[in-house]
C-alpha cells in the first residue's frame, strides 16, 4: 500500500488569497511525513482538502485511492484526524466523549489502553472547557487513534505538551507507522520533524519548496537551516 496520500497540482483560493498554488506530494503507508512551513504556507488548507473538509479548486487529492470530498463512511472509518482546535465538545468529559466516538467504528482501538497510555485517567472527571491545552491535546489524539486508522492526520500533536508527554506521543506516532499506518504530521517543531519523520515536505506561499527523505532534505545541513533558507520572505 504505497501512495496512501496523494496531492497532485492542488490549488485552493479564498477570495483574493491563494492558499495552495499547485502543490504536489505523496505519503506512503508505514511512514511518517512531516509537513512544515510558516503560517499561511498552505499546510492546513492542504490537509483539510485531504480530510474532506475543503474542496480543491483545481488539481486533485486522494486518500487510499479515494477523493475525500466525495468519500462516505467507508473511507472516513479508515482515517484518523486530530484538528488544531481539537474539535472536542467543551461541556463533555473525556471518557463519555471518547466512548461515543468509539461507537462510530466497528472495531475501535481498546479505549482503556489508549486512555491509560495517554494519561487521560488523571483528569477523566474534568470537562473539556476546564482542561489545560495539553490535556485537550491528549484527548484529541486519543480520538484520532480510536479507529486504528490506515491514514492519520495530526495537526501539531505535541503543541502545549510537557517533555514527557511529547516523548510518549512520539512513541505512539511511531508505533502507528510501524503498524502500517500512513501518518502525516503538521508541525512547527524541527525537533518533532527530525525525531518522527521518514519524509519531510516544506511548503511556502502555497507551494512545495522541499520534498524528500529527512536526509535528502537536510543534505548535510540542519533541518532548521534548510527551512529558513527556503522559507525566509514567505512567512506571513
Amino acid at each position: 500500500m504505497t501512495g496512501a496520500v496523494l496531492v497532485r497540482e492542488l490549488r485552493r483560493s479564498f477570495a483574493t488569497t491563494t492558499a495552495v498554488d499547485g502543490a504536489s506530494w505523496s505519503a506512503a503507508a508505514g511512514t511518517v511525513t512531516a509537513l512544515l512551513g510558516p503560517n499561511g504556507a498552505g499546510k492546513t488548507t492542504t490537509v483539510e482538502c485531504l480530510e474532506g473538509l475543503q474542496r480543491p479548486d483545481a488539481g486533485s487529492v486522494q486518500v487510499l485511492g479515494v477523493d475525500p470530498w466525495h468519500a462516505g463512511p467507508d473511507l472516513r472509518a479508515r482515517v484518523g484526524v486530530m484538528l488544531q482546535e481539537g474539535g472536542l465538545a467543551t461541556t463533555s468529559r473525556p471518557l463519555p466523549l471518547l466512548r461515543h466516538l468509539a461507537a462510530l467504528y466497528a472495531e475501535p482501538a481498546p479505549l482503556d489502553e489508549l486512555v491509560e497510555r495517554l494519561g487521560i485517567t488523571g483528569f477523566e472527571r474534568t470537562t473539556v472547557r476546564r482542561m489545560s491545552g495539553g490535556q485537550r491535546q491528549r484527548v484529541a489524539l486519543a480520538a484520532a487513534l480510536l479507529p486504528r486508522p490506515d491514514v492519520l492526520f495530526l495537526d501539531e500533536p505535541t503543541a502545549g505538551l510537557d517533555p514527557h508527554a511529547r516523548l510518549e506521543v512520539w512513541d505512539l506516532v511511531r508505533a502507528e507507522a510501524a503498524r502500517g499506518a500512513c501518518v502525516v504530521v503538521t508541525t512547527h517543531s524541527f525537533e518533532e520533524a527530525e525525531r518522527l519523520a521518514d519524509r519531510v515536505v516544506i511548503m511556502a506561499s502555497g507551494r512545495v519548496v522541499a520534498d524528500g527523505t529527512l536526509d535528502d532534505v537536510r543534505a548535510g545541513r540542519t533541518l532548521e537551516d534548510v527551512y529558513f533558507a527556503l522559507t525566509t520572505g514567505a512567512a506571513r
Partner: peptide
C-alpha cells in the same frame, strides 16, 4: 453555534458519522 466554534462539527465531519 458553540460546537461550530470549537471545531466539533468539523471533527465529526471527518468521522463515519458525517
Amino acid at each position: 453555534g458553540f460546537d461550530r466554534r470549537a471545531g466539533v462539527l468539523r471533527l465529526l465531519g471527518t468521522t463515519p458519522l458525517g
